[in-house]
Design a protein around this nucleic acid. Sequence first.
DNA 1: GCATTTATCGTCACCTTGACAATAACTCGA
DNA 2: TCGAGTTATTGTCAAGGTGACGATAAATGC
Lengths: 253, 253
Amino acid sequence: MTINAYDESMPESRTVPARFPVTVDVVALTVADDAMNVLLITRLLEPFRGRLALPGGFVLPGEDLITAAARELAEETGVEHVPGHLEQLGSYGPKGRDPRGDVLTVAHLLLAPNFPVLSAGSDAKHAAWYPVHQVLDGGLRLAFDHERILADAVERAKSKLEYSPLGAVFCDKEFTVAQLRAVYEAVWGTRLDPRNFHRKATGTSGFLEDTGRVTTGDAGRPAALFRLAPAARPAPGQPTRAVLNPPLMRPPP
Amino acid sequence: MTINAYDESMPESRTVPARFPVTVDVVALTVADDAMNVLLITRLLEPFRGRLALPGGFVLPGEDLITAAARELAEETGVEHVPGHLEQLGSYGPKGRDPRGDVLTVAHLLLAPNFPVLSAGSDAKHAAWYPVHQVLDGGLRLAFDHERILADAVERAKSKLEYSPLGAVFCDKEFTVAQLRAVYEAVWGTRLDPRNFHRKATGTSGFLEDTGRVTTGDAGRPAALFRLAPAARPAPGQPTRAVLNPPLMRPPP
DNA sequence: GCATTTATCGTCACCTTGACAATAACTCGA
DNA sequence: TCGAGTTATTGTCAAGGTGACGATAAATGC
């Protein structure tokens, strides 16, 4: 295929279409220590040498966006399988993002339980978890427009918790209602009434599935262990339905 | 800037990054004749010559995505100013979308009142409104992966109505509650109780603003004219907050 | 044991919602 | 001019959801 093929056949353009480097970035969010954390790498080269940045890299020819995002995540963190829910967040650029020129990036959002990342030295990258608030408060500065992308990702994560059962993907396969509540409290930065949360979480049909087992060893009464119900489990790449909340203006059933 | 600049400075890649043609597509939706309509053009050249397609075109160097979408919309429909709410929908590709090779497209969603489009012959394109259901039912086939993009856009539009005040952008600047209700009924494909809808729409603070004026000349009792309240008015390019609905699991105020 | 901690169940007042009656205010045709 | 028809708007009421919070259950740790 030659570039001129576009010139001759595209009614939208009489000129050779511009081509852009396209990258994918992954905003991997997890909940640890009662706070939302994001996975960042340290840049070793210019531009933004020494600055923290989102993991990501160039899309290869013949590759899909989600595939590229999963590949870059694997390459830079060492995780073979996507450890949670991966979805497209949005695209940024191509203008004014990279001092070297126009680069379009397609940001992705990964919601996952805390997973181990490549320790410094095992690769050229230093990947580690950082509290999100340190970045949003301005204490940590990121490369490129990654602060804005992170801010958008956090907003998306917050509303995902309102409108979808995806809060559970921050938890392990089996979890207690209190652990799930801790996720909501960390992401939203608020406290929730344990009794009302319990009523809502267990009372929402199609959300939680009781495993019949309970926790042991912790202080206090043992808690029932739940898992995400099949209906609420996110299909890979698919949009997540809002199982949780009856919105205001709503189409009748 | 040379291509080799990436080779030397990007830790993510030791090779020359691939470059892709990047297009923007616009899914312009409107409500007319109690149905959702989409703006389509007829392709005059291969591939997909004679097939209907979403308006769109290549992103230019130094151009932002939203800017490109607005420009392509203007070029192919003749509208100078964006006639409604334009936001990014999502990106598709670059693999397997175009028989000529990898092309990444960033789809955009325009929600707007019915606006006049370029009549056939005034340009190389024939732009016209088509009922969305004709496409989704398979009666009309679109070029590339535009049917999938349209389906995603319709889904997005439906949930926008649930979670945001954007239903009003389908109406004129001043509108009646019944006109607004007709939008909801058309987008959702259902009937809504006029009395309950009226209560909800007028009772939601920060949504509608009474102009003090009423309709005249129509059959039946004159209806009060409203406009979208300033708080609910969409900021250009900004994400729309959910003013309308109290979701299930919700952060306390 | 007993205090402490955490989980879970209940209660109650208030609000929202859906179904639907009733009234208001216009147009239109006889 | 006078209904008849049509559309808009205000109410009413029962059912269900929600927030605040009391009470109980069942473990741990001393």
